[in-house]
Amino acid sequence: MSGTRTGDNVIAMLSTPGDTAILERLHRRLENEADSAGLVDVAYTTVDSPLGSLLLAATPKGLVRVAYASEDHDRVLDTLGHKLSPRILRAPSRLDAAARELDEYFTRRRKTFDLPLDLSLSHGFRRTVQQHLPEIAYGQTRSYRQVAELVGNPKAVRAVGTACATNPLPVVIPCHRVLRTDGTLGGYIGGLDAKTALLDLEAAA
């Protein structure tokens, strides 16, 4: 019984605001020391948005991933660990600029993003398409066919759809602005409700 009481006391102590603050300070110290020593290859954080929690991840080159909660943040981090580097650390300060620009976008104070991007998760034609998507202006839309023509391969409509569906940086790289030729939404990595919300946000600006 005494062992149980001791365990409960430890849990209670770690749950107090003072101990929470200590743990946060320790993590910030770990973050700063690991960063200074060059031990962090992928920094990440989560931010709240009108579309739910978003995972943001960055390498020294720039923002590398934006993920919706529906993608399963733990699974996304595991994938980043395999594809990029296992040296991943929650380091919110490294994502301050990205978090700020996303907040400005969602509050209609920003129409374009000025963040350095790391497109190393995309290759070949998919990467080419994703590099061109920011050319679709805020509040405008294009069809998959029009994007295929934009990148110089008008027959690659299906491949454009795949490039949009696998976009590792949704919102920042605006694949939500690409629709089917008949004007219907088509697919979206964050779900059709998220795609609709983004289009409505931009249309109302």
Score class of each variant (00 low, 15 high):
Met1Tyr: 01
Thr4Val: 08
Thr6Ser: 09
Gly7Arg: 15
Gly7Ile: 09
Asn9His: 15
Asn9Ser: 14
Ala12Phe: 07
Met13Pro: 00
Leu14Tyr: 11
Leu14Val: 02
Ser15Phe: 04
Thr16Trp: 12
Gly18Met: 05
Thr20Pro: 00
Thr20Lys: 15
Ile22Ala: 15
Ile22Asn: 11
Leu26Met: 15
His27Gly: 04
Glu31Leu: 03
Asn32Phe: 07
Asn32Ala: 15
Glu33Cys: 09
Ala34Arg: 12
Asp35Val: 04
Gly38Phe: 12
Gly38Gln: 10
Leu39Thr: 05
Asp41Gly: 07
Ala43Cys: 06
Thr45Asp: 13
Thr46Val: 13
Val47Pro: 06
Val47Asn: 04
Asp48Glu: 05
Ser49Val: 09
Pro50Ser: 07
Gly52Glu: 12
Ser53Val: 10
Ala57Gly: 06
Ala58Ile: 01
Pro60Arg: 11
Lys61Val: 12
Gly62Glu: 15
Gly62Tyr: 14
Arg65Thr: 08
Ala67Gly: 11
Tyr68Ala: 04
Ser70Phe: 00
Glu71Asn: 08
Asp78Leu: 09
Asp78Thr: 13
Asp78Phe: 08
Thr79Cys: 01
His82Ile: 00
Leu84Gln: 08
Ser85Leu: 03
Pro86Ser: 10
Arg87Asp: 06
Ile88His: 14
Ala91Arg: 10
Ala91Gln: 06
Pro92Asp: 08
Leu95Tyr: 00
Ala97Pro: 06
Ala99Leu: 07
Ala99Phe: 03
Arg100Thr: 15
Arg100Val: 11
Glu101Arg: 11
Glu101Lys: 12
Leu102Tyr: 08
Thr107Asp: 13
Thr107Pro: 03
Thr107Ala: 07
Arg108Val: 11
Arg109His: 10
Phe113Arg: 09
Pro116Ala: 04
Pro116His: 02
Ser120Gly: 13
Leu121Met: 07
Leu121His: 03
Leu121Trp: 02
Ser122Leu: 08
His123Ser: 12
Gly124Arg: 14
Phe125Glu: 00
Phe125Gly: 01
Arg126Lys: 12
Arg126Cys: 02
Arg127Gln: 14
Arg127Ser: 04
Arg127Trp: 05
Arg127Thr: 03
His132Gly: 00
Pro134Tyr: 00
Ile136Phe: 07
Ile136Pro: 04
Ala137Ile: 05
Tyr138Asp: 04
Gly139Ser: 10
Gln140Phe: 09
Arg142Ser: 10
Tyr144Val: 02
Val147Lys: 11
Glu149Asp: 15
Leu150Asp: 04
Pro154Asn: 12
Pro154Glu: 13
Lys155Ile: 02
Lys155Tyr: 04
Lys155Ala: 11
Ala156Val: 01
Ala156Asp: 05
Val157Pro: 02
Val157Met: 07
Thr166Asn: 11
Asn167Met: 05
Asn167Asp: 15
Pro168Val: 02
Pro168Ser: 10
Val172Gln: 04
Ile173Thr: 07
Cys175Gly: 15
Cys175Phe: 00
Cys175Pro: 02
Leu179Ile: 12
Arg180Cys: 05
Thr181Ile: 00
Gly183His: 10
Thr184Pro: 02
Leu185Ser: 09
Tyr188Phe: 15
Gly190Ile: 02
Gly190Glu: 02
Leu192Ser: 14
Ala194Asn: 14
Ala197Ile: 05
Leu198Gln: 03
Leu199Arg: 09
Asp200Lys: 09
Leu201Val: 13
Ala203Leu: 08
Ala204Met: 03
